[in-house]
Simulated assay, not measured.
Amino acid sequence: MSQIIDLPLVKRLQRPSHSDKDGRGRVLVIGEGLDAAGALLLSGTAALRTGARELQIAAPPGLAASLGVAVPEARIIPLDEALAGAAAQSDAVVVGASSTAEDGRPTRQFALAPGGAAYLLMAPAMTGLKPAEAQAFGGRLVLLASLAEMAALRGRGQDEVLSEPLEIAREVAAAYQAVVIMNDRDSQIVGADGRAWQTAGNVAALATGGSGDVLAGIIAGLMARGFAPVDAAVIGAYLHGRAGWRLSHDVGSVGFLARELLEEIPLVMTDLSTAQTLPGSL
């Protein structure tokens, strides 16, 4: 049923810096609403920690100054209909928190641009998403949602999704021609072709506010580095889980913060660069 991560693929995480710069790419993270600042910071920083070369954050004017100070490595751009131009110059785009425009149109409609950018939509950006709209992304789409959020997307009961998580994830992936990550204690990752992976035994403390934003940024950083969306999703989920595992041993099994995951990301990648086998499981 489940696929195994390819170790040589994982070892691409730590290519020599002198040959990696041109392949590390640019990430654009988009969020609306004054409540989006934390999510934008977490996703954007996670993308940089995973090795993206450049970061742009599209945010409301009221957040520009604070985000510029909090993430000085990022270029802060206005949140308007110029998003398509910014997306066209990016390698990976995250459409995340509070992502419905004032006129009711999802920001994803402004952000979709021709070209080769890969996209990750978090649950708020998936509101009203139709299969035909998702298919317009040309297979360059990752959908990241909880079990409850996935149930709402498909108009299914949460109990039904809980009883058949893999089947529901495969249904969504096929219908939307997208990579699906359905988050729970054991997360389901499914490609549009039906291949499936499952994280096993994630630490309970990963179920904390902002953890999903970190995962989104990790996946975006990997896509910006040239990993295919399905590979970025699988490896990203694995890195996220290992970062949580490290913190659970250093800080405690509960009580660590999502922002503390950020500093663990490059350490986990360094550990994996010399690993003969993959610790943990997926």
Rank of each mutant, 00 (worst) to 15 (best):
V179K: 00
E133V: 08
V142W: 01
V203S: 09
A151C: 08
M182P: 02
D213M: 12
A173T: 05
A145P: 05
Q198C: 11
A174L: 15
A151M: 03
V172K: 00
L147I: 13
D184S: 15
G194F: 14
V214D: 02
V214K: 03
V203I: 15
I218H: 00
A151Q: 01
L153M: 12
G155M: 11
Q198H: 10
L141H: 01
D159T: 09
E164K: 11
D213G: 07
V172L: 14
A207C: 08
L147V: 13
D159V: 14
A200N: 13
T199A: 11
G139V: 04
D213Q: 07
A220T: 03
Q188Y: 10
V161R: 03
L215E: 01
M182D: 00
V214M: 06
D159K: 14
P165K: 06
A169V: 10
G209W: 08
L153A: 06
S211G: 12
I189D: 01
R154I: 14
Q188C: 11
A220C: 10
R170A: 04
R140T: 01
A169F: 09
S211P: 06
A152M: 11
L141C: 08
G217I: 03
L166H: 07
G201W: 15
G155T: 06
I181A: 12
D159R: 12
G201A: 14
A196Y: 05
R170H: 07
A173E: 03
G210I: 14
